[in-house]
């Protein structure tokens, strides 16, 4: 009886362990499958989205070549350039806004500070694009809804309200000891100097985080770009471009190019994200621990 028990325990343990690893492998397979699928499809030789086997019958690089050279119907290089320009400007403005606001709310005490944070919380509860129609008419009434100005409009839409997204940066600033500010003050540094010369260099991780997240924004947004660009195809961003490739009229010809485009856009973003993951967890974790 006792002998059996001793033998049973390791067996159950090994069996359970095996089971867990098999389960994890199956789940991981499910999670990676769509990503692997799009990667494989981007090299697929046969056209269209009606596919009868997981692995392609022939491999080719044509999809990438077509994506970057066929400018006649869906001008992907142009879209890429548009998004890049918009992303750079959005990034500059947003980073400045987010860091300024987060710094003030974290390190300074002034009237309306609490009010500002409550306001941000309340505004955050409204559906993001509820006001989109209104934003469109505001942009129209100041003449930003036509022609090349659409790019300016998109930059404004992406960056103007970034002052509401201060939480993660504020959480980071909160962790820098206050004594540093006080020491700087005693040495005669103004607040401006403290901000730019002392706190910023100490906050490189969060500066990098803010720059990269605000840079990613325009690449992955689809709704605002669609509403603001309407039918002006020459100002499309990559997100709308990829979306259009899957519309009924294009899908047969463009499905594999969509896959190629998705890979082109996703790879840099994935790298940035995996790099940022640490800060992401830290920012969330810090706030949760309270």
């Amino acid at each position: 009886m006792e002998k059996a028990n001793v033998n049973k325990k390791p067996f159950r343990k090994v069996f359970g362990n095996l089971l867990v690893h098999v389960l994890l492998a199956v789940l991981a397979f499910i999670w990676v499958l769509p990503i692997a699928w799009i990667f494989i499809t981007s090299f697929r030789g046969e056209k269209g989205n009606y596919i009868t086997s997981f692995f392609p019958k022939s491999y080719t690089l044509d999809n990438y070549v077509k994506l970057f050279t066929d400018r006649s119907i869906l001008n992907f290089p142009q879209m890429f350039l548009n998004t890049l320009i918009i992303a750079i400007f959005t990034c500059l403005i947003s980073t400045f806004f987010v860091l300024s606001v987060a710094y003030c709310l974290s390190r300074l005490r002034f009237r309306l500070r609490r009010a500002y944070m409550n306001m941000a919380m309340i505004l955050g509860l409204f559906p993001g694009f509820m006001s989109m129609v209104a934003v469109y008419y505001i942009l129209k009434s100041i003449g930003l809804s036509e022609g090349p100005m659409i790019r300016v409009a998109l930059v404004l839409v992406y960056s103007a309200c970034s002052g509401l997204g201060f939480q993660i940066a504020k959480g980071f600033f909160d962790t820098i000891p206050k004594s540093i500010d006080e020491a700087a003050k005693i040495d005669g540094a103004t607040q401006w100097v403290t901000f730019t010369k002392i706190i910023m260099p100490l906050s490189k991780p969060i500066v990098v985080y803010t720059i990269l997240t605000s840079f990613i924004g325009p690449w992955v947004d689809f709704i605002f770009a669609k509403v603001l660009c309407r039918t002006n195809a020459q100002y499309y961003t990559v997100a709308i471009g990829l979306w259009s490739m899957l519309q009924k009229e294009y899908i047969q010809q463009w499905y594999n190019c969509f896959a190629a485009g998705a890979v082109v856009v996703s790879v840099p973003i994935a790298i940035i994200f995996l790099f940022l993951q640490r800060y992401y967890v830290d920012g969330m974790g810090g706030a949760v621990k309270g």
Partner: peptide, 20 residues
Amino acid sequence: CFVLSIAVPQFVSLLIMRTM
């Protein structure tokens, strides 16, 4: 393996799912 799916832009992975 699991976190990789966050790294891919949501509209890309969702559109793939839809066509699949």
